[in-house]
Design a protein around this nucleic acid. Structure first.
Lengths: 198, 198
DNA sequence: CCAAAAGTAAACAGATCTGTTTACTCGTCG
DNA sequence: CGACGAGTAAACAGATCTGTTTACTTTTGG
């Protein structure tokens, strides 16, 4: 392990731990002392890699954005089913997951909610997280051969993010059921459009 | 104005001001000093009516929940159009509104995001806000005579809340356009169901 | 083996937060 | 008039927050 790797290892360790704490506790409510507690990492090291807590938050959002795409879509990508079945399976998998581990929503949206009108940099990084996820929905719709994949992908993202939030608010996974029913109707509507054009 | 009225007037004044500040700045990021600044209200009075900041937050959520229903649905209820047109107009009105004033999302969802896993009382009040809005969507679908109004109403709420959040994240009203397109498809699908039953 | 780099631990500064207390003002009602 | 209820203003207590500094330890490369 050379120097650069070691340093980056420490930096990554901080980001991962900060992610856990921010995700569970929120950004404003989680202090840097809480992040470092029981880790053996000193505050000085944190402020060496990140000039301020806001910089750390932006790094955590970048880390989360890169991680969440695989976390969301790998389980259905390896499903070897038709694209339509993969999209429907996506909502089932999400629903099942949130019944096992408590749902805290999307960290990008959480950040945007907490910093809207107050910190443009963090807003930009939060936006990137959501755009990444949206773009994968659109790609999935393209590969599935739907007419107007950009619009359909955005609508799937809308239903997914809405279901995430409402299931958090309700403390119950049923919004994913409503979302899936809506997705079925939307996919059927697009298929009708395709057959009309064919 | 008798004694009780005057007191309740003061209480309401605090709640209204707190709503403005919380809505714009978030719950954790807004201190009670900020709420009282430039109002001439003293901290002692605030803590007379509300034993703690958390109690104030719950009162603000109740106030918001009662207010937001009219704010959202009165503009379309007075439209004297078919229920289908009213539902579509709802999304147009919301889009137009957020182009005028900066969108901060739903306060109930904001509260749930900030206090999930940490304060059950606030979570319950936040949930009530969202349930109120959802129930009006369902009522609207019932009056419109759709088959399965409960499911459709929940889906409309899902699309609305998703569009609110994403338009906040993106800083742009286009998610309301995607949501409206999805709503058109969903309403058409339900109408097909209705005509099949007729 | 030794010097530089990297890290821990802990005190510290200064700001800010919730909530309490003290002292004063003012309008109302008997 | 006089007492009381409601309110303002401001100091205060104690906790917590971000960020800095000082002193010491560990690791690593030549």
């Amino acid at each position: 392990m050379d120097k650069a790797e070691r340093s980056e290892g420490k930096r990554l360790e901080i980001v991962k731990r900060a992610f856990d704490q921010f995700y569970d506790g929120g950004f404003h409510a989680t202090g840097v002392d809480t992040i470092l507690a029981e880790t053996g990492i000193s505050k000085r090291t944190l402020y060496k890699y990140f000039p301020s807590k806001d910089d750390l938050i932006e790094a955590v959002l970048d880390y989360y954005g890169a991680w969440i795409v695989g976390e969301l879509f790998d389980p259905v990508a390896s499903l070897s089913a038709t694209p339509r079945e993969q999209i429907l399976a996506f909502f089932d998998v999400r629903r099942a997951r949130m019944q096992k581990v408590p749902n805290r929503g999307c960290l990008g949206i959480k950040a945007s909610q907490e910093f809207v009108g107050k910190h443009a940099g963090i807003m930009a990084h939060g936006k990137q997280v959501t755009l990444r996820v949206e773009s994968v929905f659109v790609e999935l719709c393209e590969r599935a051969g739907f007419t107007r994949p950009a619009e359909l992908g955005k609508q799937l993202n809308l239903l997914f993010q809405g279901a995430m939030l409402l299931s958090l608010v309700y403390g119950d996974s049923s919004p994913f059921g409503s979302a899936k029913d809506a997705v079925v109707a939307l996919l059927d509507a697009q298929r009708d459009g395709a057959s009309l054009e064919a």
